[in-house]
């Protein structure tokens, strides 16, 4: 029964893979914390890992949720709303998240269901299923697709950890009329704890239809405050961010500066719903 399900799913993915969208943005990456560090996030483990590398949610100790809002270049048409919730259980951690980008006449919607668990104290893996729905104008039919993704994270030693992530390896399509496909995305990165207060991370991302991007960032913790900065190479963006923890609640803001296009702002908040010991 299970096998049949997988075969059906794969067949569906392959069929969908025949078609689909040009500049598809919402393949993941959400949360104001990663946005303050150049977007490097593949080796981070927090509730937003659900959108960045699902393996990360296996590190959560308690049920957590977060919401974030992003605006690009102060244009209301270019904003993104996202929300995540992740719940650890004895079987592993389950998560559900969404992002919505755009406005009434063009929007990209993204729902992700993820499952992650620790396979070893130093190694965790995650799997996510995505439902993508794109609406463009009133005249055109909405387009949809299903894509899956995989991610792993490993703690190499006390200081160093790695993360790797693969989105849409089956090259799902997103249009019935054209050959537009969702991009395949591969990311690999390292995180390094210089001290308990200073964390640095770097990653490389390759999307099937773009030049590789390199991102790096630093996070500095001062009591319950966080200062962040980072840079992404392609497109070239400098990032700055701040965060604060107040009990089981935390907020983050970030700004990304692009030379020609301007500023991207993002704000987010996270809560831990119940502490497991």
């Amino acid at each position: 029964m299970m096998n049949k399900g997988i075969v059906f799913l794969l067949a569906a993915l392959m069929l969908l893979g025949r078609q689909s969208v040009g500049a598809f943005e919402a393949h993941g990456r959400a949360g104001a914390r990663q946005a303050g560090m150049g977007g490097a996030s593949v080796s981070l483990a927090d509730v937003w890992s659900l959108m960045n590398n699902p393996a990360g949610i296996a590190a959560l100790q308690s049920t957590s949720a977060g919401i974030a809002f992003q605006n690009r270049f102060f244009m209301k048409e270019l904003s993104q709303r996202s929300g995540v919730v992740a719940m650890p259980s004895s079987l592993g951690t389950f998560g559900l998240g969404f992002t919505q980008f755009g406005y009434r006449l063009y929007n990209e919607n993204f729902v992700r269901l993820a499952y992650a668990r620790n396979l070893h104290p130093n190694f965790r893996a995650g799997l996510g299923f995505n439902y993508i729905y794109v609406q463009a104008g009133n005249e055109y039919p909405a387009r949809q697709a299903v894509a899956f993704e995989l991610g792993v994270q490993q703690r190499i030693n006390r200081q160093l950890s790695m993360g790797a992530y693969l989105f849409n390896p089956a090259r799902a399509g997103i249009s019935e009329n054209t050959n537009d496909r969702l991009p395949m995305v591969m990311r690999f990165g390292l995180g390094f704890h210089f001290t308990d207060q200073l964390y640095g991370l770097a990653e490389v991302e390759k999307q099937s239809d773009r030049k590789p991007d390199i991102r790096a960032g630093l996070e500095y913790q001062y009591h319950q405050f966080f200062l962040r900065t980072g840079v992404a190479v392609n497109p070239s963006i400098f990032n700055f961010g701040m965060g604060m923890h107040i009990g089981s609640f935390s907020i983050d803001i970030s700004a990304g500066l692009h030379q020609q296009l301007g500023t991207t702002l993002q704000a987010g908040m996270q809560f831990n719903l119940n502490k497991v010991r």
């Binding site: 790096a216 190479v233 400098f238 030379q259």
Partner: peptide
Amino acid sequence: GLYGGVVASLAPGWKLTAFADHFS
């Protein structure tokens, strides 16, 4: 222009220097 650079001693004997500069 906006310039950001970092110098980090990753381990004894290893030093990393990196910078990024965006200018117009």
